[in-house]
Amino acid sequence: MASNSSKSPLAALSGLLCFVLVVGGVSGLLHEWLGWIRFMGFVRFLIPNGYEIYGYVVMIALGVAVGVAGDALTRRAGR
């Protein structure tokens, strides 16, 4: 069974979005809890003031969901 190793543009975009959301959320949580520098500081503009912890947790969960959806899209296209 031959598989096509190239990903569709939508699957590649979902992978990038997954990476940005998960890494940005983890970076934001580390900054909030430990005061470390922000790795992806631009994501702080996506979170409302006063809801930083909740917002970063939601961002991580959304990133994981986008990653799972993109993986399912890639698997479905490979059939």
Rank of each mutant, 00 (worst) to 15 (best):
M1D: 09
S3V: 10
S3D: 07
S3N: 11
N4C: 04
N4I: 02
S5H: 13
S5W: 11
S5M: 09
S6H: 14
S6I: 14
S6Q: 14
S8R: 02
S8G: 12
S8P: 00
A11E: 11
A11T: 10
L13T: 10
L13D: 08
G15N: 14
L16T: 12
L16F: 15
L17N: 02
C18Q: 15
F19C: 10
F19S: 11
F19I: 08
V20E: 03
L21I: 07
V22C: 10
V22P: 03
V22A: 02
G25L: 08
G25M: 06
G25V: 08
V26E: 06
S27A: 04
S27T: 09
S27M: 01
G28E: 02
L29D: 01
L29G: 07
H31C: 04
H31D: 04
H31S: 08
L34N: 12
G35R: 00
G35P: 04
G35W: 00
G35S: 03
W36Y: 08
W36T: 15
I37W: 08
I37Q: 13
R38A: 09
R38M: 09
F39N: 08
M40Y: 09
M40S: 09
G41V: 05
G41I: 02
F42G: 05
V43P: 01
V43C: 01
V43G: 02
R44C: 06
F45C: 01
F45K: 06
L46G: 07
I47F: 06
I47W: 06
I47L: 03
P48Q: 03
N49R: 14
Y51I: 02
Y51F: 15
Y51L: 10
E52N: 11
E52V: 11
I53N: 09
Y54K: 10
G55W: 11
G55R: 09
Y56V: 00
V57K: 08
V57E: 13
V57T: 09
V58I: 14
V58W: 03
M59D: 05
M59E: 10
M59V: 09
I60Y: 05
I60D: 02
A61H: 04
A61K: 07
L62D: 04
L62Q: 02
G63R: 04
G63K: 03
G63A: 02
V64F: 07
V64G: 05
V64R: 05
A65L: 15
A65V: 15
A65D: 00
A65H: 07
V66P: 02
G67Y: 04
G67F: 01
V68P: 02
V68S: 00
A69G: 11
G70A: 01
G70C: 04
G70W: 05
G70D: 10
G70V: 06
A72K: 12
A72F: 13
L73Q: 05
T74F: 13
T74Q: 13
R75C: 08
R75N: 11
R75H: 12
R75M: 08
R76Q: 07
R76S: 12
A77K: 13
A77L: 15
R79Y: 13
